[in-house]
Design a protein around this nucleic acid. Structure first.
Length: 273
DNA sequence: AGTATCTCCTGCGTGC
DNA sequence: TGCACGCAGGAGATAC
């Protein structure tokens, strides 16, 4: 389930193999993803060179001179570099072949991912999937003051609020739970009820946990050219996510789990107020 | 406008 | 061993 650190790690992992190289073929075995892969994608890509690979929220953006290839990994997607041809397995839906013999393989068992094309790099901000996105969590624009102001009159649980991509992008279920625990804030607290110091603490934790996960992901870069491996959060120590019923790492109280907006939410009722 | 619910999909764990 | 079932989740779409 790629979260922002996994996306960041993916970009760092594939970049060295692809930048400056020309695409010579695209093989689509299954185009039915979250959205259909556009029919025109072959003609848009073949014969052109990847000049940049960047990220906006969890969207991976391949700058291809006359447009942008947009890839979202959904929750089970991955991108892998193959240094030599290898028979595709079930769920290996797309291969992008490069002149240097390298293959970029898109795999996505649950097919919540997406592969799209935008004709104009300058218009990317206006792309329907990107134009309503909130601020980047690791940028200086994410501040306690920003969240405090946006949270005025918002009664939703703070966990839902920080997972709202119109407010701030890249905070998925795992990191939302972890950062709220680290900040000692109840996930159920209405967003508008948080004080400035509470937002300060939460912002600090979101940034530091995301950064730690990205740093940990850096140690798993080899996975991008290995047959298996999922980089990212497996490498960092999770305190509450997936640990329902286990003792709180701080006070040893049994961790509880409740659903907030269809998402399982693990928390410590003693440490998080 | 804000909020909650539905939806896509497959793999895995559980209980019978 | 096999089946039915529930759950997991990113985020757009839809319905209040």
């Amino acid at each position: 389930m790629p979260e922002l650190p996994e996306v960041e790690t993916t970009i760092n992992g594939i970049k060295p193999y692809l930048i400056g190289h020309k695409i010579i073929d695209v093989k689509i075995r299954k185009s039915h993803l979250r959205f259909p892969i556009p029919q025109s994608i072959n003609q848009k890509l073949i014969g052109h060179t990847v000049s940049t690979i960047t990220r906006r929220a969890k969207y991976i953006l391949f700058g291809i001179h006359h447009g942008v290839l947009i890839i979202h990994l959904g929750m089970s997607g991955s991108l892998k570099i193959l240094l030599s041809p290898k028979t595709p397995e079930l769920h290996d839906h797309v291969d992008v072949l490069f002149e240097n013999q390298i293959c970029l393989r898109f795999r996505d068992p649950r097919r919540f991912g997406a592969i799209l094309w935008s004709d104009d790099e300058r218009a990317l901000k206006e792309h329907p999937l990107l134009k309503h996105l909130g601020i980047e969590p690791l940028s200086k624009t994410l501040t306690a003051k920003y969240l405090y102001q946006r949270a005025m009159n918002r009664q939703v649980a703070v966990k839902s609020f920080i997972m709202d991509s119109k407010i701030v992008v890249g905070v998925g279920n795992i990191y939302a739970a972890e950062s709220l625990f680290a900040a000692g804030i109840s996930p159920f607290k209405p967003a508008s009820a948080l004080s400035i110091p509470e937002w300060q603490s939460l912002v600090r934790e979101i940034k530091s946990i995301l950064k730690a996960a990205i740093k940990a992901g850096g140690t798993t870069l080899k996975d991008f050219i290995a047959p298996s491996g999922t980089p990212g959060y497996f490498s960092i120590n999770l305190n509450v996510y997936g640990k329902e019923g286990q003792p709180c790492p701080q006070c040893k109280t049994k961790l509880k789990s409740r659903r907030i907006n269809q998402r399982s939410t693990v928390y410590c009722e003693k440490c998080q107020k």
